[in-house]
Design a protein around this nucleic acid. Structure first.
Lengths: 371, 371
DNA sequence: ATGAAAGCGCTAACAC
DNA sequence: GTGTTAGCGCTTTCAT
């Protein structure tokens, strides 16, 4: 049986061919193709027609060879666990990144890693100068990859606040306002008159989980109660099963709990299930708030989940924007603009805060029926 | 618009530099770097040391310029709807693809599209010869993109059976045995003694939904009943909400239904919810079978879902393998090996069937409690 | 405003 | 075996 894909090594037209056809030099064609400044309009028009007729597309390899640019960005997702693939988080970020890169004519090179071997592979690839920059998701505090990449000298923006301590120079990153969002959630619960508000944490080797826990503590500390009762905090791992386990433990330990702030929606779902199973009503007996606003799950849970929404796609967009922007800033010779720290780099996102090298996106409380 | 680009990294060492350092010619270094055949071992060793000392990494652009190869594959995901981002389907495929490509030292260029503009963009990119091949997911029958890509003359493998009719030459593709899986599901239900087995379809503009419906009909036709009662088939769309709607309609129309084969797990979940709401017991009153084995959802539904498992990651792997295989066959100048049609292209997947240009992966029925 | 010419870093003939 | 050399297709001074 013949191979269904026909090779057709049709040699594609070159600049030279276009030049000949238009009766000009290669240099002129090149100018037109790259913006066309400084070329008489009549000529430019001739060239454009030749390009169209020949179906000319620039050879990116040849171009890169001389410009040392690639118009390509690597997206590195380091996640040994399969969690990445279990929630739409990562897909939404990719979507945002993709849109932004596309808008700037950049390609997205996806690097998925799991395990040590991949680390060196990725580090080498990035150090190899095949892309103009990297967007890196560092999910775990102990992951060595982000550090390796940072050291590789490639312009990089991180997704989520990286958790290093011992390194000099915090890298650029974009993150959700996890701490602020957590505060909002807990304040909402307090505003409902709840006094024994528990927290089921996420995996504490991730900054997002730590930050949400901190936000919870912030509010509990303010509380009249004198807050921060450790028996109200149960460590978990962002999964539904973990949420169930934690909720059971919590109920056993503190049967008087009247509200739960879960580190994410998946966890909240697990908690909801246990609450129902124990015959407790939500929100009457126990109010529940999640985090993420993961659709359609959050909407269709029973009862529909009150939760803290984060705009994940926007996070991706901003990461890409920041990388592209930073790159040009560097090229302009600026030593690191003083403006970047004060105005949002989004250029259209007044709501985003930028403390130091990080861009923090705001959250919104979505009220449904669970609290 | 070109992005305002990147800083010049420290100029990295070239072949020339390595050659000088090792006291040999560029050609020799090139030979060593590309496998080292036909080079005296003592020399090769000198070269390797020089490479290591200088931290030399080949310039891919320069290499591509002459070899016309890129060691890169595009993955095109065309999905106007957000469904892609709501289930882990794509993430898993990507994982499989990524693993396979990595094993063959290929890069993954991700092309996400939504809408017309992106079509031309993607088609141009692929036609531009920037990658060695493309892996394309064509979800909807009426999507023009797969056709455009097919016409672009780039070696391509499709994910899921493409639904074209009017074109000559079916393209290579990898798919799950949707029809066979559906038959298994329905036979299982029949084996349970159910006689009024309904089917909630997926979005019928996707081949997977059509194939599952066909599988359902296959079995119903065999059935003593004289099967194929149209009132037992409700059209839906693969979503939980759609599943709810369909289940309500079904119950209204056929209160006597005693089993449901849902086109996927999400749909089954919606159906389960309605069944519970109407006070019907699962599986006692109505047995339910899903499709996908989407974890952890399928495991943690109430009751845990009996479903048809498909190995999505493996699908991705095979797509990549098939493409790379074809690509190397092309490079080898072979006119297309006669073996490809009869032995699985997986080279290690005896279970995969290959009818014509398609590779069909087997499914497994996972028995839990809903049927 | 336009063209001529010099490479970018690499591979692949071809010569030795 | 190893070196020499001629480009791959493009951008970019530098003349004109």
């Amino acid at each position: 049986m013949r191979s269904p894909v026909v090779p057709e090594a049709v040699s594609r037209p070159t600049l030279e061919a276009v030049a000949t056809r238009a009766g000009v030099s290669r240099a002129t064609v090149s100018r037109v193709v790259n913006g066309g400044y400084g070329v008489r309009e009549s000529l430019a028009e001739r060239v454009r027609r030749a390009v169209a007729e020949l179906g000319y597309v620039p050879n990116q390899a040849a171009r890169s060879l001389v410009t040392k640019r690639h118009d390509a960005v690597a997206v590195v997702i380091a996640e040994p666990e399969a969690r990445v693939f279990t929630d739409p988080f990562f897909a939404l970020q990719l979507r945002g990144i993709s849109k932004e890169l596309t808008a700037h004519d950049n390609q997205l090179v996806l690097l998925l890693t799991e395990g040590r071997d991949d680390h060196t592979r990725v580090a080498r690839y990035l150090a190899g100068g095949h892309v103009d920059g990297a967007l890196v998701f560092s999910l775990h505090l102990d992951d060595p990859l982000p550090g390796l990449i940072h050291d590789a000298g490639v312009p990089t923006v991180f997704g989520g606040r990286p958790g290093w301590r011992d390194r000099t120079g915090t890298p650029l990153y974009v993150d959700t306002d996890n701490r602020g969002g957590a505060r909002t959630a807990v304040r909402h619960l307090a505003g409902l008159g709840r006094t024994r508000i528990a927290h089921i944490t996420g995996a504490l080797d991730q900054t997002s989980a730590v930050d949400r826990l901190d936000g919870y503590r912030d509010v509990m500390a303010e509380t009249a109660d004198g807050g921060g009762d450790p028996s109200l905090v149960v460590e978990s791992d962002f999964t539904p099963a973990g949420g169930e386990r934690a909720m059971r433990e919590l109920l056993d330990r503190r049967p008087d709990v009247d509200a739960v702030f879960a580190a994410n929606d998946l966890t909240a779902l697990g908690a909801l299930r246990v609450l129902r199973e124990r015959g407790l009503r939500v929100p009457e007996d126990v109010a529940v708030v999640g985090f993420d606003d993961m659709l359609p799950l959050a909407e269709q849970s029973d009862p529909p989940l009150t939760t803290v929404r984060q705009d994940i796609e926007q996070m991706g967009r901003l990461m890409a924007r920041l990388l592209l922007r930073g790159a040009s800033a560097l090229r302009d010779g600026s030593t690191g603009s003083g403006r970047e720290g004060t105005s949002g780099p989004g250029g259209g996102d007044p709501a985003a805060r930028t403390p130091g090298p990080g861009v923090i996106l705001p959250t919104t409380l979505i009220r449904r029926e669970s609290a």
